[in-house]
Simulated assay, not measured.
Amino acid sequence: MAARTTSRSSRPVAGVAWDEVALAPVVLVHGAEHVLVERAVQRLRSLAREAQPELEVVEVEASTYQAGMLAVETSPSLFAEHRLVLVRGAEALTDALITDVLAYVGTPAADVWLVVEHRGGQRGKKLLDGLRQAGVPVAACEPIKKDSDKASFVSAEFRRGGRRVEAGAVRALVEALGTDLRELASACDQLMADTTGTVTEATVSTYYGGRVEATGFRVADAAVAGERAQAVALLRHALATGVDPVPIVAVLALKLRQLAKVAAMRGRGGVSASELGLAPWQVDRARKDLQRWTPEGLAAAITAVADADAEVKGQGRDPVFAVERAVLRICAASRG
């Protein structure tokens, strides 16, 4: 069992990645990305079971917790079995739980691992601050927003599953399902369960090709490449299948921001993809796309998307017309 940490510090302990936190007598799993919270808890359970195959797992609901329950669940076992006590939903905790957990942290039981799960929000701040000041390890499970981080998540999912995945397949999955991390994780599980060998871009296309082609990402790629006919066809298909103009405009803006970021780094050595907030494949794609763009053209395209953004959010009468006009202006701004 990991060594006990009982010293207190006035400085909060920074969290570590959810898949890197070590098993300890008390661990806080904290963040608003519920998929990562679940992954972190499952990982800690697996680590505990590896250490103690006869592990007993006890779950305690924070919202219904009553004073003294933690003492009962962490008291010495009749058969000297190790236990993992999981406090679920500490974002909806009772005052009694705060008192009991903070009292327990100073002298944790020798045969117990306590995992406190908190899924974000301000409620329970006293508990969170107390655990951090006590030096408790924190598994950080904050929402994943950058495409580069989503790509890293997908790659890690396949790595944990013992499978190889092509960079193009990772990109295709993020483009198709990247708005929902749970759906992205489920897709990784499905592909690993239903296929063998290396997961390729063609494999992803077989399972999720329709989703990819109907998204704003394909529209944006075609527009930036100056492929007017394809961009308009993809746009109309996306709109016909129920995709709202607002997220399409958002993707167009994202694509152009990526081009602008990479363009600004031209001639500046030593700048990594991570510093730009992009995945390496996104930087490579942007560099290739930029061969078709002048600074003036890029500025005109960004202006077109800004105008469309205002129109689809209420300043225009026809959001569909606004987004189609923006796509045409982007294609025109490209050197084609």
Rank of each mutant, 00 (worst) to 15 (best):
S9M: 04
A90V: 09
Q230K: 14
V204R: 11
S274C: 01
K146F: 10
G31V: 07
G168A: 08
A134Y: 05
L235M: 04
R287P: 02
L55Q: 06
E59A: 07
V243I: 11
G209E: 09
S155F: 00
G161M: 13
E157R: 15
F321L: 14
G270D: 06
A134N: 05
R218S: 13
H82F: 01
Y104R: 05
A109E: 12
R160K: 10
A202P: 02
V27W: 09
R171L: 10
P12D: 15
W113Y: 15
G242N: 03
H118F: 08
M1A: 12
A250T: 09
L36C: 02
L252N: 02
L177H: 12
T215L: 00
L184F: 05
L78D: 01
G135S: 13
A333T: 04
I144T: 15
S75N: 05
A301M: 04
V138L: 08
G15P: 00
A193S: 14
R335N: 05
E311L: 11
R11S: 15
Q315K: 11
A109K: 06
A110Q: 10
A326T: 08
E33I: 12
P247F: 00
P76I: 03
A253P: 02
T94N: 02
S77R: 03
I98T: 15
R329V: 00
L102G: 10
V58Y: 00
K146N: 04
A110P: 00
L328K: 07
L254E: 12
A231C: 09
Q66C: 00
R287Y: 02
Y208A: 07
L252H: 04
D189Q: 13
E175C: 13
H118Y: 10
E324F: 09
L47W: 04
D100T: 06
S46C: 02
L28D: 11
L36V: 02
G336E: 09
L254G: 13
L70F: 07
V105T: 10
A110D: 15
L44W: 05
A326C: 14
G130Q: 02
V27N: 07
L128I: 15
E54A: 13
L44S: 04
S7K: 12
V154T: 02
D129N: 12
G31Y: 02
G124N: 01
G31I: 08
V85W: 05
P108I: 08
G120W: 06
E20Q: 14
V251L: 14
R164H: 08
V138Y: 06
G242D: 04
V138E: 04
A169H: 10
G277V: 11
T200Q: 09
I144A: 11
V212Y: 11
V305C: 14
A24V: 03
S7P: 01
G209R: 03
A48M: 08
A3T: 08
A220S: 15
G68S: 01
Q315I: 01
G120D: 09
R8H: 12
L86S: 03
A2I: 07
L128D: 02
S334D: 01
V174S: 10
S7G: 08
L276N: 08
A308V: 06
L86C: 09
R11P: 03
L93F: 04
S205G: 09
